[in-house]
C-alpha cells in the first residue's frame, strides 16, 4: 500500500512537471525510480524506455511497466492514471479558457521562454539514458564503440532524412545483435 502511494506521488508530480512533452521528465523519472526508490536498475529503466519507443502512441507509456513491477496490475493502472490525469485535466481546462489569453503578449513570452528549458531538459534525458546505453564504463571498449556508432548514426540519419524512427530502432537491434554476438 505504501509503495502504491509512493508510485502515485512520484508520477503525479512528474505529470505536472513535463514541460514541453514527456521527455522533459525523463532524467528526473530515472533518478526517482532508480536512485531514490530502487524500483529497478538503471539498465532496466533504460531498456524499458528504449523498448517504449517501439510501441505506438505516447512515448512514455512504459511508466505502466514500472508500476507493474512495483505493484502488479493495480500499480500499472495507478501509475497510468497518476501520470496522465493531472496534465490531461490541466490541458482540458486550458483548452476551455485559452481564447482569453490568445491575444496576450505574455503568451509568446511563456512559449519562447520555456522552449530553451525544454531543450535543456531533453538533453538531460539524452545524458541520463546515454550514460547507460551509449557510453557505459561497465562495458568493454568494443561494446562502447559499437553503441556509440549506433547512437551517432541514428541521430545523423534522423537529422538528414525523414524516416520512421521505429524502423531505425529495429535495424539497430539487428546490428547490435550481429556486432556483439556474431562478428
Amino acid at each position: 500500500m505504501k509503495r502504491l502511494v509512493g508510485l502515485v506521488n512520484v508520477f503525479a508530480l512528474l505529470s505536472l512537471l513535463a514541460v514541453g512533452g514527456g521527455t522533459a521528465v525523463l532524467p528526473q523519472m530515472k533518478h526517482e525510480v532508480v536512485a531514490l526508490h530502487h524500483w529497478m536498475t538503471a539498465e532496466q529503466f533504460t531498456d524499458l524506455y528504449s523498448l517504449g519507443q517501439l510501441a505506438p502512441g505516447p512515448n512514455m507509456n512504459m511508466v505502466a511497466v514500472i508500476g507493474f513491477k512495483v505493484g502488479g496490475v493495480a500499480g500499472a493502472l495507478l501509475v497510468l492514471i497518476a501520470f496522465y490525469l493531472p496534465s490531461c485535466t490541466l490541458a482540458f481546462a486550458a483548452g476551455r479558457i485559452w481564447d482569453h489569453f490568445r491575444e496576450s503578449p505574455w503568451r509568446d513570452a511563456v512559449q519562447r521562454g520555456m522552449a530553451p528549458i525544454t531543450v535543456g531538459l531533453m538533453l538531460s534525458g539524452v545524458y541520463a539514458i546515454g550514460t547507460v546505453a551509449t557510453l557505459n564504463f561497465h562495458h568493454s571498449l568494443r561494446h562502447n564503440l559499437i553503441t556509440s556508432a549506433i547512437t551517432a548514426s541514428v541521430a545523423a540519419v534522423l537529422l538528414l532524412r525523414r524516416i520512421n524512427p521505429a524502423l531505425l530502432i529495429l535495424l539497430a537491434a539487428a546490428i547490435g545483435w550481429f556486432a556483439l554476438r556474431i562478428a
Partner: peptide, 8 residues
C-alpha cells in the same frame, strides 16, 4: 544494446 543506443 542496439535498441538502447538507437533510442539515445
Amino acid at each position: 544494446a542496439g535498441v538502447g543506443a538507437a533510442a539515445v
